[in-house]
């Protein structure tokens, strides 16, 4: 019943580029100054003691521990997987992260390491990070990742088509990728740094949700600016409004540039005061990050012992 409304709306808009354009243009605008001011105000929230402990653990559970380098090796991915399952070997109470995120060729390595651990395997696909490849190639990329065992796929949208106003083309591509994903969860990377305006971010968010994305994600991490608080605020408002309208809940994943526990807690505050506790869960919110995890671990240890340990006490990824 609930998802029916999402499907009905998507079907209504999918048939006609004009209808889709009219719908997206009809979304309320975003005032840049106001959105940035709201995000800045929420960033002044002071999260201390028990609230901080709780937030740090939740943030660890939301991390998509990521390595997306040309120099990645199976050895590095194995190490990353070990860390994903037991982030802090000295503390058995430390929860595992949500997922490990790698390139498709390294998915088999990650799958083998993580089997049975509950940690998901996410793979970027669709000619990540530029998305500049024919659709057929992108879909093969997705199928290969899923066949290799990835249960989450992080795709990039065709920003060129989006910025040129060819919304329907972007829509159809996302639908096709979603279909190629099968049961795997689809995260749609908007690459907000290339969309530039918050109005575009809101439209791209709706487009991705209408096309069936399970998550909307800010960035590849390869383009600056990557995730920011105001961009994430706009995306959170989009998933909130989309659920109000259709009944379907979509997740949000800021990625790139989130390096400190303090930053991560600011995002949790943003969720809490924008969309509420329904999204305060790794099923609905993820951090795409690599170095963030060590800072979260360092802060956890500080909360437990009252002292900061040096960086050598935490493993490098």
């Amino acid at each position: 019943m609930e998802t029916h409304e999402a499907e009905r709306l998507a079907a209504e808009l999918a048939g006609s580029p004009e209808a889709l354009r009219t719908f997206l243009s009809g979304l309320p605008g975003v005032d840049q100054v106001g959105a940035e001011q709201r995000a800045a105000t929420l960033a002044t929230r002071s999260i201390k003691t028990t609230a901080k402990q709780w937030a740090l653990d939740l943030a660890v559970r939301m991390v998509d521990l990521t390595t997306l380098e040309g120099a990645d090796t199976p050895g590095k991915v194995r190490a990353l997987c070990a860390k994903a399952m037991r982030p802090d070997p000295a503390d058995p109470g430390c929860p595992p992260v949500a997922a490990v995120c790698v390139y498709p060729t390294l998915v088999p390595t990650a799958v083998a390491q993580l089997r049975g651990s509950g940690v998901h395997v996410a793979s970027v696909a669709t000619a990540f990070p530029s998305g500049q490849a024919p659709l057929a190639v992108k879909l093969d990329d997705v199928r290969a990742a899923v066949a290799a065992g990835a249960d989450e796929v992080d795709m990039v949208i065709d920003r060129g088509a989006f910025l040129a106003g060819r919304y329907e083309e972007v829509f159809r591509q996302i639908v096709a990728v979603k279909e190629a994903c099968g049961d795997a969860h689809l995260k749609v990377i908007l690459e907000t740094g290339e969309l530039v305006t918050y109005d575009n971010v809101r439209r791209a968010s709706w487009l991705a949700m209408l096309a069936g994305g399970d998550f909307i994600k800010t960035s590849t991490g390869k383009v600056a600016p990557a995730a920011t608080l105001p961009v994430t605020l706009v995306m959170l408002e989009a998933v909130r409004d989309f659920r109000d309208r259709t009944g379907r809940q979509v997740g949000v994943k800021p990625a790139g540039g989130i390096r400190t526990a303090k930053d991560a807690i600011r995002y949790l505050v943003l969720i809490n005061e924008t969309v509420g506790e329904d999204w305060l869960d790794p099923r609905w919110f993820r951090f795409g990050a690599s170095s963030l995890l060590n800072d979260l671990l360092m802060q956890r240890a500080k909360m437990a012992t009252g002292r900061y340990a040096g960086p050598d006490y935490f493993t490098l990824d």
């Binding site: 929230r45 002071s46 999260i47 201390k48 003691t49 028990t50 609230a51 901080k52 709780w54 937030a55 949790l268 505050v269 969720i271 809490n272 506790e277 305060l280 869960d281």
Partner: peptide, 9 residues
């Protein structure tokens, strides 16, 4: 789960 902010006086 609810995010309760601890007092931060």
């Amino acid at each position: 789960m609810a995010f309760e902010y601890a007092p931060a006086p």
